[in-house]
Lab assay of single mutants.
Amino acid sequence: GKELVLALYDYQEKSPREVTMKKGDILTLLNSTNKDWWKVEVKATANDKTYERQGFVPAAYVKKL
């Protein structure tokens, strides 16, 4: 199945390749080969529509579930 990670801290994206997350968010882990930056998929809701974004977050800010 898919691997999930838990956001340990809030993170505000600093570039278009990154994604914003809030502490407590559960994210889908896409790639953890880089030890510093993990690629995740974030589900977000805006205007009653759910959309998914993929991007990088600092590996130290998340932990595998």
Rank of each mutant, 00 (worst) to 15 (best):
V40C: 03
E3W: 13
L27C: 07
Q12M: 13
P58N: 04
N47C: 12
Y11S: 01
L29I: 04
D10I: 01
W38T: 03
A46Q: 14
K14E: 07
L6S: 04
K35R: 10
T20F: 06
K35P: 14
K14T: 12
T45L: 12
V19Y: 03
Q12V: 15
A44W: 15
L29N: 01
A60W: 09
N34T: 06
K23T: 06
M21A: 02
G55N: 01
P58W: 04
S15T: 10
L29R: 00
K23L: 04
F56R: 01
G24R: 00
P16W: 10
K2L: 11
V57L: 02
Y11T: 01
L29G: 00
G55T: 01
W37D: 00
Q54H: 09
L6R: 09
R53N: 05
L6A: 06
N34A: 08
V40W: 00
A60E: 10
G1S: 13
Y9V: 10
D10H: 04
R17L: 13
V19A: 05
V42K: 15
Y9D: 06
V40A: 00
N34D: 14
Y61W: 06
L65N: 03
L29E: 00
K43L: 14
A59L: 03
D36L: 13
V5F: 05
Q54G: 05
G24I: 01
V40R: 00
V5G: 10
D10G: 07
R17F: 12
W37E: 03
Y11R: 03
P58E: 03
E52S: 14
S15Y: 05
K63V: 15
T50A: 11
L4E: 07
K14H: 08
D25C: 07
T20E: 02
G55H: 03
E3M: 11
L65Q: 05
E52K: 15
E13K: 12
T45Y: 12
K14I: 05
K22M: 08
D48E: 10
V40L: 04
Q12E: 11
V40Q: 00
V62N: 01
W37K: 02
G24E: 02
V57T: 01
D25R: 01
D48I: 06
V57R: 01
A7M: 02
L65H: 05
A59V: 05
Y11L: 01
D36R: 13
S15N: 10
F56V: 06
V62Y: 03
A60L: 10
Q12N: 13
K2Y: 13
L27W: 03
W37S: 01
A59Y: 04
K14Q: 13
A46D: 14
V62M: 06
S32A: 11
G24Y: 05
D25N: 05
N31Q: 09
S32N: 11
P58D: 02
A44M: 15
T28A: 09
D36E: 12
A44V: 15
T45E: 11
I26N: 01
A44P: 08
E13Y: 04
K22H: 08
L65Y: 08
K39C: 15
T20P: 06
Y61L: 12
K35M: 10
M21F: 09
V19P: 01
N34F: 08
A7K: 01
R17D: 12
G1T: 13
V40H: 02
K22W: 09
L65T: 05
K2W: 11
N34L: 09
T33L: 09
T20L: 02
I26R: 04
T50L: 11
P58Y: 03
M21K: 01
L6W: 06
Y61D: 03
K14P: 04
K22F: 08
K22D: 03
K64Q: 08
Y9R: 15
Y11F: 06
L30M: 06
N31H: 06
W37G: 02
G24P: 01
K22T: 08
W37C: 05
N34Y: 09
E52Y: 15
G24K: 02
E3H: 11
S15D: 10
D48N: 13
L6F: 08
T28N: 06
Q54A: 10
L30A: 03
F56S: 01
S15H: 10
W38G: 01
V57A: 02
E13M: 13
D25I: 03
V62K: 01
P16H: 10
E18N: 05
A7I: 03
L29W: 00
K23C: 06
V19N: 01
L8I: 09
T45G: 11
T33V: 09
A59N: 03
K64F: 09
R53F: 06
K14V: 07
S32M: 08
K23I: 05
K49V: 15
V42D: 03
Y9N: 08
G1R: 14
D48M: 08
T20K: 04
